[in-house]
Design a protein around this nucleic acid. Structure first.
Lengths: 233, 233
DNA sequence: ATCCAGGTTTGCGTTTCGACAAATTTTGAA
DNA sequence: TTCAAAATTTGTCGAAACGCAAACCTGGAT
């Protein structure tokens, strides 16, 4: 276990409002770990032994159905908590978490959850805000799936990824981790074929530029128009 | 404000584990109210002034999209908390809540949220468990919408309603509040026409029996088979 | 530099389901 | 009882998107 400098984490949302010395204690309880790309951090159904904070990288949270279909629940960006089953009173993880790139992850034993939240209510409050935001997000996605067509959903997914994790380049905004057509189809409930067709079409119109596992958003506002459902008709 | 007897609520999940006298205090802070069918309890976007416990009845939680489409987020049954925006750090309600039948509702001023959770951590924990369960539920619904066909989703929705709120009758299990084809379509992301066709077909096969705003599940296991996707092929 | 596996594109037939339309039934109110 | 509004049923048509198949890139490994 390596010692972490408090200054590395003092700014990130889950720890906002916690005093420096308390934060030091919190960190002393954590384990820091490098996770290489494509490694599984925890698995669906596995007993929830720990909860996590992503210090660096991107993590994909994936649900697998009984007949093997995969659905991407969300991408975690650095600074976010994940695998917080204990906060929700769950005994086991409800999804797989896989490193989308090489990552650095902090983890705490789940058994500490109660201790920590009792001692640091600010942390608890922050966490529940996160949970609230995710519930919101999930509800919004349900609405989206129920009311919007595939084209809109894919446009939306690409835009969200670009906003959440995009790096500015001279061509536009590049999603800064490798993401395949398949991945996007698993975020939007469609097939990789349909996603491929859409991206090709958009590329022809100059809205995006994409290569293998790379997507750059060029005309975000036009994508937003598509996402809103005013594609042409 | 009428005084409530503690024994009326001591058994319901959100209050499990709270001592009688504390519960009395909690109740003394609440307002009890009768809400008649089709009345709106709170509206999407409205400032979250209160949080609620449904003592009796059924409440429909509905999201409305910018272009007027409605999506039913969930049905609340008696004994459940709802409108708990404060628990999630939200300033306003993210959906409408409408009484599906005549209801009895307890409400607390949102400003008491912090006080209450600090004084009664058990209540807080219970609440977060609820939130966790709902997040789970939402995620599952996303997976369902992403991977299953309309027929499966509708079968699932009917089954869930029957399990959650069904009353045993001599014909089968009757969903015990009025629910239209339109409602079911708004739970499953389809149209009332498609729902109508499905219910008609199932009625012909003897799986369900339905009248205007009434559905009785007769052969639940067969419905479950459809929900699992083994309809025929 | 070459090769190969995984990722992507594209075509085509098929299915599912939504859109529109119209008839019919049901229920509650006058 | 009669009537009107709301809910439901049913038919037809067409579009959206999936499944399957095959070809084609592309970039990393050797």
């Amino acid at each position: 276990m390596s010692l972490l400098d408090v200054s590395l984490v003092i700014d990130i949302p889950p720890f906002r409002g916690i005093e420096r010395e308390n934060l030091a204690e919190l960190l002393s309880w954590a384990r820091s770990e490098r996770v290489e790309k494509d490694r599984t951090i925890f698995s669906q159904g596995e007993e929830a032994h720990s909860f996590f904070l992503l210090l660096d990288g991107h993590v994909r949270v994936v649900k697998v159905t009984p007949d093997g279909d995969q659905v991407i629940a969300r991408y975690i960006s650095s600074g976010e908590l994940f695998g917080i089953a204990q906060a929700l009173g769950l005994g086991s993880y409800p999804a797989n978490a896989v490193a989308a790139v090489d990552c650095v992850v902090l983890s705490w034993p789940g058994s500490l959850w109660t201790t920590i939240t009792e001692k640091y209510p600010t942390f608890a409050t922050n966490t529940y805000k996160t949970v609230g935001a995710r519930l919101q997000d999930a509800q919004d996605r349900i609405v989206e799936m129920a009311t919007e067509r595939v084209e809109q959903r894919v446009a939306n997914a690409v835009l969200k990824l670009a906003n959440q994790t995009g790096k500015k380049t001279d061509e536009g905004i590049l999603i800064d981790f490798p993401i395949s057509r398949q991945d996007i189809s698993e975020m939007t409930g469609t097939t990789l074929h349909t996603v491929s067709r859409l991206l090709s079409a958009w590329e022809n119109e100059g809205l995006v530029k994409s290569r293998r596992k790379k997507i750059t958003v060029i005309e975000g506002h036009k994508l937003a128009v598509i996402a809103a459902g005013n594609s042409d008709k």
